[in-house]
Design a protein around this nucleic acid. Sequence first.
DNA 1: GTGGTCTAGACCACC
DNA 2: GTGGTCTAGACCACA
Lengths: 126, 126, 126, 126
Amino acid sequence: MEFKDKQSIYLQIADYICEQIVLGQWPPGERILSVRDLAASLEVNPNTVMRAFEFLQTKGIIMNKRGIGYFTAENAPELILAFRRERFLETELPELLKTMYLLNISMEELQKRYNLFIAEEFPVKA
Amino acid sequence: MEFKDKQSIYLQIADYICEQIVLGQWPPGERILSVRDLAASLEVNPNTVMRAFEFLQTKGIIMNKRGIGYFTAENAPELILAFRRERFLETELPELLKTMYLLNISMEELQKRYNLFIAEEFPVKA
Amino acid sequence: MEFKDKQSIYLQIADYICEQIVLGQWPPGERILSVRDLAASLEVNPNTVMRAFEFLQTKGIIMNKRGIGYFTAENAPELILAFRRERFLETELPELLKTMYLLNISMEELQKRYNLFIAEEFPVKA
Amino acid sequence: MEFKDKQSIYLQIADYICEQIVLGQWPPGERILSVRDLAASLEVNPNTVMRAFEFLQTKGIIMNKRGIGYFTAENAPELILAFRRERFLETELPELLKTMYLLNISMEELQKRYNLFIAEEFPVKA
DNA sequence: GTGGTCTAGACCACC
DNA sequence: GTGGTCTAGACCACA
């Protein structure tokens, strides 16, 4: 997996995990890959994965069973969507709209790109 | 001026300068406030303003005349918009569309919020 | 390490790093000394080394891995030689030729001095 | 006249004056353009020209007659060539030779470029 | 441990 | 007056 420069890796990993959960790849209530396995598959330091897990645990999205591993919460998908919705509406959206205004990007163009994006990335639903 | 925590101050200053240029407050080819003056008005250390200037100079948005000061480039507005457009289309937009998909936010809702935003922030044009 | 007065220290450090890379002392793709260690060994402030690193990073000669350190780019030697060649041909050489003309220095004399220089500085190759 | 970034303007002006003298454009013992005239023609601040004059005066290349202006010394061309020769041999040449070695530029190529340069810049002598 | 940022303050060359 | 560089020292997030 490749990481962006501008955001810390552990947060990008946390986002990745959330995405997998929301997309149904990691069912609620089930055990997650171990820290070292995930670290190996992502090619990062285990400490970094650990931090992502701890971060998600504080949010209640995953929880730890001592000596066994981490498990996704039963309501993990709902929790994640709620957090993300909040972040989107309160911080990302205002910046987006401002940028669209400054760059003079129309809603029509956005709509067109949205259709393209869906067709490419999630062809199943489309 | 107040600064956010999540981004470094000097980059926020650079963004601020770009915004002033794009909005036509600082005309192309004109002299910018001196490092010291801008630092005083923003209440930061001159070194921090200096970093912002250096950053913008490497982008070709402003340039230095020895012993006199910094000047906005003649094509500064176009340059800034080009940079921002590239960043938007290549990194911000994909994230946005993905989030919209995950959160199941419709284009109609986005349109509604855009109209609201324009009415509030830039009532003149609206 | 000793520094000249006429050029800023951080640029001299950048030059020094480039020289080490070109001469094969610091292999491409390998980790560089940490900012603090290099600063200590050169007896300068860490900030000064940091500036040199930032400068080289913008040139693509070195790159950063978060929390780990700086690494020389795989194509660093080629990049450096390309930059240097360009600078030499476009700015240094014209001045040199002009000076030689004004001073009435012949190519023969230059050749003689070149042979002497090689014999002294790089006796292995010679 | 256009100036390079890396060297101070007043020194570039001093070099320009020296060049004119050596090339015979400004005869020894004659009066030089006034500070303000030269400043106007070079499009720089008169103070900057003043500094160049003062610098050349300390070298004995030009001298001031109060209330009249600056005059080139009778032995100006010889003085200039002596200074320039020293600078060339002691500082410029070693760097040049090192660069040539690193860039693997042969004397033959240098000779070729020298011939080209002479033909272009000083066709009279050629 | 790593880099990154910021401040405070000094000193410099230059226009 | 202008920018430019350097130091010292602090604090932070990150791996």
